[in-house]
Nucleic acid binder design. Structure first.
Lengths: 257, 257
DNA sequence: CAGTGGTCTAGACCACCAT
DNA sequence: TGGTGGTCTAGACCACTGT
């Protein structure tokens, strides 16, 4: 005897309709009132069922409009290749990738000098609280909030690359700028985690309940020394990361493809 | 004038207490009744606030016990190295890793022969619906559900490696078994995504609302031919993945460390 | 047993969106 | 203006956990 609570019956029925295509991506879900009649439940019970589907990331709601089935178009991010310093680029790596996918990139940008958090200090191998330069991007694709990216540079690097701490954008990309100033990154360490967004992140990325974020932390090394730590927060419903791993010796991973 | 709804005020106050350590990991959150008095709200409003924190992954509830602040111990998974075929192992790679961390591994296991799903077929480069062998693991660490792993092998591989389709475990690990039968994997393609768990996944991994899963899909190639596709579903609150990426040519990624 | 959360109802008022 | 979801209340009964 499966004694399911009523709100689960509502959610299960709608979930089935979403999965079998009766409610395709983008479709409107029956209104709370309709569900009250159909399942003979109170409004709050119908809402509980809908809320469950929201927290599963299947639907979302907006006031005055109703509930809608999520449409998930995902963007693939190949993280295993180094930025190719020879390959022609149109601005930074992000803009290049988005444009080559036929989409329109947009980003806001700011620079701050501030004490490094514990996590960042550990990765940059500096004392916690030591000064670091933060370069922060808020990125959009076709005006949809896509990701935030915070890159921290240790203070000692600024004397060799002063533009890091200046407010303006670096058109050619900071990786190229650093390489031109003699700091070439030859090793990356990537960490990937997931969690629900903080309220701040939910605001910046315009995601509601039910959409997790992907946290991508990349530490770049020049020789044995870490020279930057980039924390990227990606909308989990729109992004997927790829890595190609090769067991062949003597092969560069830097070929354009 | 920030006109926050009451349930958000409740959630914000508790979130602050969690973040500043007044409510440390593992601590009991004040009961719904206490919150009703403290914030002068109805029980449902207090519950809404608590529900919000649950969906953010900060707390969880259980009947009769109360709400508890999540304690997050994370396990790091280094995915960038190949399984070392020479290095002595104690069973498969998972058991070896868990034991070497001083934890107790446990897994249940089953084998099925079934038509490949569209996603799997694409990665194995076989026709959708073609027969594939599924080897499925449900893995625990110290009796906590940790991950599920489904590995699919194309049917043509079974004639060279018949034990793949047999019910029993392969003690030395399937990668070694395949290598011993002449199929050495020399390239991996990894895809990493995140989303909220399906009800089935939530049951297997024993996660409630507010904990996303990390989906790790690894396709292994022998030459140009895909020989397996492994889909691992990891609890997002307990796992982090790492990749080391090296720009040096002529260096094996297969050294033990 | 007392205290906890889980489910459910009926009703109210408000804010937003389309027409 | 009517329909949608968002917030909030007061009260009821049930199921689970500890002592």
């Amino acid at each position: 005897m499966s004694k399911q609570p009523k709100y689960r019956l509502v959610a299960d029925a709608l979930r089935r309709e979403i999965e079998d295509g009766s409610l395709p991506p983008g479709a409107r879900v029956p209104s709370e009132n309709k569900l009250m009649e159909r399942f003979e439940v109170s409004r709050n019970t119908a809402r509980s069922g809908l809320h469950l589907l929201v927290s599963e990331g299947l639907i979302s709601s907006s006031q005055g409009l109703g509930y809608e089935v999520h449409a998930n178009e995902i963007f693939e991010l190949n993280a295993s290749r180094f930025e190719n310093l020879e390959f022609p680029q149109d601005g930074d790596a992000y803009s290049t990738d988005v444009k080559s996918a036929g989409r329109r990139p947009h980003q806001t940008f700011r620079v701050e000098v501030q004490p490094a958090s514990k996590d960042v200090a550990k990765r940059l191998e500096v004392e916690p609280g030591a000064t670091a330069v933060l370069r922060f991007c808020h990125r959009f694709v076709d005006d949809v909030p896509w990701s935030t990216q915070a890159t921290y540079y240790p203070e000692w690097l600024v004397s060799a690359a002063p533009r890091l701490a200046e407010p303006g954008d670096i058109e050619e990309g900071t990786t190229r700028y650093l390489a031109a100033r003699g700091t070439v990154q030859d090793r990356y360490f990537d960490e990937i985690a997931t969690r629900m967004p903080t309220p701040d992140e939910a605001r910046l990325l315009e995601v509601g309940a039910g959409v997790p974020v992907l946290l991508w932390t990349r530490t770049g090394y020049s020789g044995e020394r870490p020279v930057r730590c980039t924390v990227t927060t990606l909308r989990g419903d729109l992004n997927r990361m790829n890595y190609e791993i090769d067991n062949l010796s003597g092969r560069s991973e830097n070929e354009p493809k």
